[in-house]
Every structure is written in C-alpha cells, then in structure tokens.
Amino acid sequence: MTPPLEYYLWFAALLFVIGVAGVLLRRNVIIVFMSIELMLNAVNVTFIAFSRQMNNIDGQIFVFFVMTLAAAEVAVGLAIIVAMFRNKESINIEDMNLLKW
C-alpha cells in the first residue's frame, strides 16, 4: 500500500515551515544555514514525489542539481561565516547588519 501523493506534499510543507521558522527565530548563523538546508530538502521531497507520481525522471535530475547547488552554497556560505567571525568575533546574525543606510 503506497501512501498517496498528498502525504508527501504535506510532509514536505511541514519540513519547509520548520526550516522557515528556524531561519526567522534563531540568531546563530550556522543554525540559520542548517535551516536553509532543511528548506532545500523539503523542496527535494516534493520533486521526487512528483517524479514518482508521473514516472518521469526529470524531477530527480532537478534534485541532483539542487544538491550541487546546496554543496556550493554551503562551501561559500561557511567561508563567509568564517571570514565574518574573524572580523567581528561573533556569529550572531544580529551583528551582521552592515547592509543598511
């Protein structure tokens, strides 16, 4: 008995919202980053669920590219965090407020 498509989508939505909440609530930049990974993965689940539903492999290829992107993003993002920490001795997101008037 396979679960219907809705289950996967509901599950993905839940996972996504948890990621959003993490981004909005936490002040540790590394945790914020992890939350972003959660959101990316939630989207991956929907891709793969639809791919199975339609028996079409394109969705899985997309997931593959998302993973590539995630890897690149984490590498650059963590590098930024390290550089940031070196300058400000902090990884609190509220200390990163240079982008303002």
Binding site: G19, G22, L25, R26, I31, M34, L38
Partner: peptide
Amino acid sequence: IVSALMVI
C-alpha cells in the same frame, strides 16, 4: 519531523 524540530 522530530529531528528537524530538534535542529531549530
């Protein structure tokens, strides 16, 4: 879900 909640 549970471990994701743990993450945040």
